[in-house]
Each structure stands twice: as C-alpha cells, then as structure tokens.
C-alpha cells in the first residue's frame, strides 16, 4: 500500500506529501527520537506526537515511508517546508497513536 492510499484509508489529513507513491511496510510508534532511531525500520510508517523540526531528520535517516502525527498534533513552524525539501511525507490524524496503529494494521492486512 502506498502512503497516499494509506492516508485515504485512515482518513488522514495530508500535511505534506512529496513522495505519495512510497510503499508502506509496517509501522513503528514512538516519541523518544533516539529510541526511534534505534528501532524504526526503513519503509515503516512512524506514528508520533513529536512535532518539532528534528522529526524530519529522524525520518530521513531512518528512511521511514511517512510520519503520522497522532492526536491532531500540529507540526511547528517551518517543519513542513523542510519536509518538502527533504522528501518526507507528513500525515495527521485525530486518532490516538494506538488507534492509528490499529487502523494501519487493519488496512494493510497486518493484523
């Protein structure tokens, strides 16, 4: 499933989608950045409530397919511009991190 398809399936708001056709393979949830750095795998969707600029660097280096901001978190000023420049997809959902992960598992047949 691509990031755009995932976004539609979960009813996410597409804050920035420079790479809509990237494949999503699984998911990692976490807010502590070096924890995410150590654990997230390439192509996973990363669900977090962290909204500062550093999430873009982490997403780039871990090569996740997208960031999903849960709980209707709004990214800080400038984050979306950098995401665009670095080719990092950012979605937003009103759901909790658990709710978003559970929904992702359902729609990707990963239950």
């Amino acid at each position: 499933m691509t990031v755009r398809e995932l976004s539609k399936a979960l009813g996410c708001e597409e804050l920035k989608l420079p790479e809509p056709d990237r494949e999503v393979e699984g998911c990692y949830c976490g807010d502590l950045l070096s924890w995410v750095m150590g654990r997230a795998q390439a192509s996973q969707a990363w669900i977090t409530i962290m909204s500062n600029i550093n999430i873009v660097a982490v997403a780039t280096l871990c090569d996740v397919s997208c960031i999903i901001l849960s709980e209707n978190v709004m990214p800080d000023d400038g984050v979306l511009d950098v995401a665009e420049a670095k080719g990092v997809n950012i979605l937003r959902t009103a759901d909790t991190t658990f709710g978003a992960a559970a929904a992702l598992a359902r729609v990707t047949g990963n239950e």
């Binding site: 502590l32 950045l33 750095m37 150590g38 962290m50 500062n52 550093n54 999430i55």
Partner: peptide, 14 residues
Amino acid sequence: LGFGAGMGLPNMKR
C-alpha cells in the same frame, strides 16, 4: 524535544 532517552551512545555502538 524528544531527546534524552539515553539511547544515543548505545545506538552508536550498536
């Protein structure tokens, strides 16, 4: 900001 998990140096080693 999301730092301070104390995982940085262990990650570098790993």
